[in-house]
Nucleic acid binder design. Structure first.
Lengths: 190, 190
DNA sequence: TGTACATCAGTGAACGCGCGTTCACTGATGTAC
DNA sequence: TGTACATCAGTGAACGCGCGTTCACTGATGTAC
């Protein structure tokens, strides 16, 4: 009845999603072609449409997958504010800046996502809600709802700081932005 | 000796830069083709290379021009912190969010600029320095250097907040991000 | 003042190329008997 | 156990299209006399 292990196609699909996530974050959504993406996954271009309806469909699914991964990472942090402080320092590190492919999808792609169709923005919206909830819960464990605004401020500051640091050609200046960004984020979370 | 008014070509070049700025901010750097850009300026594709060496060269010049415009806008603000508060409210308005073509180049393009070549990043770096100086000078007129870090925090928060609001498909959520963003920015500048 | 000429910003067709997408096919696998 | 068949993930060539770029040309202008 089943010619391949029944998870085979799902496994391949997941591999495409993950490799595409890396490539998109490195070269941009418009900057990554379907043939390159498939070759990253060890396949040829033709197989693409057995997994996704279109490139737009892939983008929406990659965005959902990327944010899912981000959210899962919050579980590995130390609990409460301490974990958030660790996160800030790791997020605003030169290592993260210099390896966007392995990093935060918002830092790498947020302005491009703003120009995407509704499916992609929907996927991003769902993920963003959960990330902000996660941050808020750590800011004020007793009453997460009250920290919603602060969570938005902290997240946007992290994303904006990383993007700014990446856009600077002057290394010293770019490093300064990260360092001041850590001070700013820690001060803002209070 | 001079067949056209001697500023004629410069005027045309400036028109290309401004129209391209609008288009780039609306559709992205990769999403805007040379033919479209020239047609926006009321010209045909062939004339492009009489003004710029390549599309990359145009991008670098547009980025420089856009940041020049942003910096000039600081002169029209009320002096000191009051002007900064006005700026925050205007920046984080639904009007700005819904018309990226006329808005802030960082909010529209910052992650794409991070993937550009050195000429573009250089142009961005020069402009960013001057914008941060402008903000710092308004935060603490007595000692701008001490407010450098805070200027970075304020600017990255504004940029990140606008990008986030634009990426959300849920209007209510997107509006909430802007409103909380204003509170956050005002609280952060102290 | 009128005509021939030089200048040069801008035209528009054409270039090769890589894009997203389609499709007839392959070949490894499990099933049937 | 061995052979014929059905399945289907993946192949790779081909599609039309728009990209960035080139180039021979146009035509409006100011100059020369």
């Amino acid at each position: 009845m089943v010619r391949y292990a029944k998870e085979h196609k799902q496994v391949t699909r997941q591999r495409i999603l993950e490799k595409a996530g890396h490539r998109f974050k490195q070269d941009g959504l418009d900057g990554s072609g379907v043939s390159t993406l498939m070759s990253d996954a060890g396949l040829t271009n033709g197989a693409f449409y057995a997994h996704f309806a279109s490139k737009d469909d892939l983008v929406a699914n990659v965005v959902a997958d990327q944010l899912r991964t981000q959210i899962a990472a919050y579980d590995t942090l130390r609990p409460g504010r301490t974990g958030l402080e660790d996160l800030i320092r790791e997020y605003l590190s030169p290592g993260h800046r210099d390896n966007p492919g392995a990093g935060c999808p918002s830092a790498a792609l947020l302005d491009e996502i703003g120009r995407c169709g509704d499916a992609t923005k929907q996927a991003y919206t769902d993920g963003a809600r959960r990330i902000l909830d996660e941050i808020a819960a750590r800011l004020t464990p007793g009453d997460p709802q009250s920290a919603r605004g602060k969570a938005i401020g902290l997240y946007t500051m992290l994303v904006g700081t990383m993007q700014l640091s990446r856009a600077l050609s002057d290394r010293t200046f770019a490093d300064e932005v990260l360092e001041k960004g850590i001070e700013n984020a820690l001060a803002f979370m209070g």
